[in-house]
Amino acid sequence: MQPVNEMELKFLSKSNNESFARVAAAAFVSQLDPTLEEMADIKTAVSEAVTNAIIHGYENKVGFVTMRCSLYADSVEISISDEGMGIENIELARQPLYTSKPEMERSGMGFTVMENFMDRVEVISQLNSGTTIKMYKTFKSLKNKN
């Protein structure tokens, strides 16, 4: 299926870009006219993925985070990529309450939140070369409309 619209955004792994990324994603997705709740789901999931890239992907280093959004008639695909250290054990990282950074008061709920707010979450990661999180969501409000 061909997307009806696409965008790509590249920004530094600075924590103040977390809000920039989620607001940008929500603004782009808004052209499909989903509900406010569905928009909030997108914002939250993007925030989690970008935070992971900044905290875990790049740790204290600065690098670029890339966000790609593809819009379809009633759904969206969002991918968030970093060129950071990668995830050693993806299965473990996705487990609820697992965190590699308890000293930073991280709850270990990032992936669980993404999975709950989106329909599907894929994690592609290679040690020392980076991680991509792909998230998919069909807007039920639009499916009923079309």
Binding site: A40, T44, E105, G110, T112
Partner: peptide, 12 residues
């Protein structure tokens, strides 16, 4: 707005 970072803040 709140994401999972809020859980850690409250629990801490």
């Amino acid at each position: 707005f709140m994401d999972s970072s809020g859980i850690g803040v409250i629990l801490g």
